[in-house]
């Protein structure tokens, strides 16, 4: 039917069946936006924890250190150089660098002072070995080669450290993901509670809709749509503030890594998380509202 055929007094657009309730919706919007903001930070934190822990594990598992033990009558620096050469000749070793006594003294300087060590004080020298990524050499291979050459040594494959770091990294990842799940759960619970309150506040509307033959699903969809939009809007607000914080940390934080302390950098993955956050917030809100309302309506007959 064309619009000209409509009676002149018939309104052209359908009004929304659920009346707006800004008194309830505004605080809910604020709470949802804060939850999305926290969820975004948790997701970015999880991503950061993942990246950093990967780096830690790669650093530790890709290296070994050989201590050349000072023995009377032997030239430790010559032993270190020979050990480096032997190590580099092994398959699965990318690079081996022999440390000098001066470098060993520099490492001890924070504890023993900068006035130099007595020349006769035995100081173990270090050989830093970088392993190949594929099929790396084992500590046993290296020990066997050094034993065969008669070089007094101790091989440290960082196993003690790397196990602790892997455990810590896994814990950090789990904590970040757990936090994310908790916040998502809290958001769903808040939305479900709000949807029930909204349903109770609009009881007369629901009764009238039932009276004229509305299916429960039809009524639930009305609430679902309303909370989907609310979730999207809150998601946009929360993601925007999380983005602002991420930028602040990226450009306002330390420029270089301080040992194990990671340097934050905003990645494409982070951008995708922030773009997806409003959609996920909308979907969680819609699903929570639909389930809460449908559950409430089911209990009525």
């Amino acid at each position: 039917m064309s619009e000209e055929r409509l009676p002149p007094t018939a309104p052209e657009k359908s009004a929304p069946l659920l009346p707006a309730d800004s008194g309830r919706d505004r605080p809910l919007f604020a709470v949802a936006a804060i939850l999305v903001f926290l969820a975004c930070l948790a997701a970015l934190g999880a991503r950061g924890a993942w990246t950093v822990s990967d780096g830690w594990i790669a650093d530790l598992s890709g290296r070994m250190t050989v201590q050349i033990m000072p023995v009377d009558g032997r030239d430790a620096e010559a032993d270190a150089a020979e050990a480096a050469a032997l190590a580099e000749a092994l398959p699965g070793v990318r690079r081996a660098v022999a440390g000098t006594r001066a470098e060993a003294e520099a490492l001890l300087e924070p504890w023993l002072g900068g006035e130099g060590l007595p020349a006769d004080l035995p100081v173990p020298l270090l050989v830093d070995i970088e392993l190949a990524a594929a099929d790396p050499a084992s500590a046993d291979d290296l020990t066997a080669a050094l034993d065969a050459a008669g070089i007094p040594h101790r091989v440290d494959d960082h196993a003690r450290w790397s196990e602790a770091v892997v455990r810590t990294a896994r814990l950090a990842r789990l904590m970040a993901l757990g936090l994310l799940a908790l916040i998502a759960g809290a958001a769903a619970a808040v939305i479900a509670f709000a949807a029930r309150a909204s349903l109770a506040a609009r009881q007369s509307v629901v009764d009238a809709l039932h009276l004229v033959g509305a299916q429960d699903g039809y009524i639930a969809r009305l609430f679902e749509r309303r909370f989907f939009v609310l979730g999207i809007r809150a998601g946009i607000a929360g993601a925007f503030f999380a983005f602002a914080i991420a930028l602040l940390v990226t450009y306002g934080g330390p420029g270089q890594s301080e040992g194990f302390i990671p340097v934050w950098s905003f990645s494409l993955w982070d951008g995708a998380v922030l773009l997806l956050a409003p959609v996920l917030a909308g979907l969680i809100a819609a699903l929570s509202a639909r389930l809460a309302v449908a559950n409430d309506l089911r209990a009525r007959w």
Binding site: A15, L17, D207, A208
Partner: peptide
């Protein structure tokens, strides 16, 4: 009556 106050007579 049980009409909906936020809707017009037509609605």
């Amino acid at each position: 009556f049980r009409t909906l106050d936020h809707l017009s007579v037509f609605e």
